[in-house]
Design a protein around this nucleic acid. Sequence first.
DNA 1: GTGGTCTAGACCACG
DNA 2: GTGGTCTAGACCACT
Lengths: 123, 123, 123, 123
Amino acid sequence: MIELDFSGHQPIYEQIIQQVKMALSKGELKPGDAIPSVRKMALELSVTPATVAKAYQELERQKIIETIRAKGTFIAANVKMKVDDDKLTIIQKKITGEILELKMMGYSVEEVKQFVADIYTAL
Amino acid sequence: MIELDFSGHQPIYEQIIQQVKMALSKGELKPGDAIPSVRKMALELSVTPATVAKAYQELERQKIIETIRAKGTFIAANVKMKVDDDKLTIIQKKITGEILELKMMGYSVEEVKQFVADIYTAL
Amino acid sequence: MIELDFSGHQPIYEQIIQQVKMALSKGELKPGDAIPSVRKMALELSVTPATVAKAYQELERQKIIETIRAKGTFIAANVKMKVDDDKLTIIQKKITGEILELKMMGYSVEEVKQFVADIYTAL
Amino acid sequence: MIELDFSGHQPIYEQIIQQVKMALSKGELKPGDAIPSVRKMALELSVTPATVAKAYQELERQKIIETIRAKGTFIAANVKMKVDDDKLTIIQKKITGEILELKMMGYSVEEVKQFVADIYTAL
DNA sequence: GTGGTCTAGACCACG
DNA sequence: GTGGTCTAGACCACT
C-alpha cells in the first residue's frame, strides 16, 4: 500500500506521513479505520520501527491519527486540518523555490498552474 | 540585497543560490553583470567564504554564472536553464508534498492555482 | 584500494573521483556495491571527511553513485554516463594540449594512437 | 593571431604557451622568427604584461624561444623538444583522466583513437 | 552509525 | 585582489 523511495533525499518518515495523508485524501482510508501497528508496518516497509514510530508520532501531533492503548492506531474521528497561518507561510516558502525553478526553465504562469492542477487532481 | 534566514532548515548556500536566481528572474541582475566576490559577499552576509563559494560553484555548474580567473564572477551571457527531465521529476516530487498539504487544509484546485500564480508573478 | 598523490597539482577529491570511476571501469566495482563511508575512507586515505564528501557528492551529481540516508553510499544501478556535448568540448580542449606536446616531441599520429589505445585498454 | 578564452578554467598563460607551440607546429612560425615583445603582445591580447611574461619565461625554459637583450624575442634556432621521460609520465597522467571519461561515456578504443587522430592532424 | 552543513583558519595559483 | 582546495573540528537530521 505504501511505496518508499530509498534512493532519494526525502526522509523515509516524511514519505510515510505523506502517503498516509494521500490515502486519506483519496478516500482509501476513512476516519476510524485502523492502521497497521508500528512493528507491522516497519516489517512491511523494511525499515526500522523507530522510523515508523517517528512518522506516527508526527501524524498524531497533527491529530490525523489516534493511538488507543492496547487497541492500536486509528485514523482520527474528526480529521480536520487546522488552517494555520504559520504553516501556510512555511508551505509558501518551500513551494517558492520550486516555482522559481520552473519559471527559470521557461514555464509560463499558465503552464505552472496546469502543472499543479494536474498534481492536485491526482492526489 | 540578499537576506538570509539562519533559523531554519534550508541551507545557507541554497538560500544564496535561490536569491541570485530570483534577482535574475526579477531583472535586478542581467547577463554580464558582476556579482560580489566570494569574500565580499561572505562579509556582507556574515558567513564563511566557503559557504558562498559552494553556492557560486553550484550556480556555475548550472551555467547561471561564470567565473573569470582572478577577475571575479559574472552572470552568464546565455542564461538558459536546460529543461532536464530528471530535474522536473524531482521538482514534481517536492511540490507534490506541499500541494497535498494545501488540499488537506481544504483548498480547492482553483485556490491552489491562484496561490502558485501569485507566487509566480511575485518572482 | 585507492592511492593518492599528495605531491601534485591534481586535487585530492578529483583523484578519488577518478579512481572510483576507474575501479568501475575495471569491473572491481559493480552496480549496487557499497563503497566505504565518508569517514572510513577519510581515515584510510588520511584526509579530512569533507574532502571525501566532496568527491562523493560530485560522483552522485554524475549519477555514478547513490547515497541512501543513514545507510551509506552505493554504486548506482544504472551507471550510464550521459553524453554531454558541453563536456565533450571540454575534454577535447584539455586533450588537445597534451596531444600537441606529444606531437612536438616528435611522435607520429600512429604512435599517439597507440599511446592512447594502451591507456584505454589499461583502464 | 592568438585567441584567448577568458571564460574557461585554463590559465591564460598556458593558452599563450600552447598557441605559440601550435603556430610552430603548423609552420606559421619558424626558427629565427621574431615574436612580439611582452608589452606588445600584452596589449594585443588585453592581458597584463606579467601574464605574457610568465608564458615567455616558460617557453624560454623549454628552449622554444630565446630572448636577446635589446633585440627582442625569437623562436629558438634549434627547436627540438627533448623527449623527457618525466614529462611523458606527466602527460600520460593528465591524458588518462580524459580517456577514462571518454571510455565511461561509451566510446570504444577505435573511436577514441579516431578522436585523437583528428585532433593531431588539426594541429 | 550515516551523510549534510557550517565555521575558522590556512595555503596556493592566477592576473 | 580573485577563486580553489584543504584541514580540524563542530552540530544536525536521519535510521
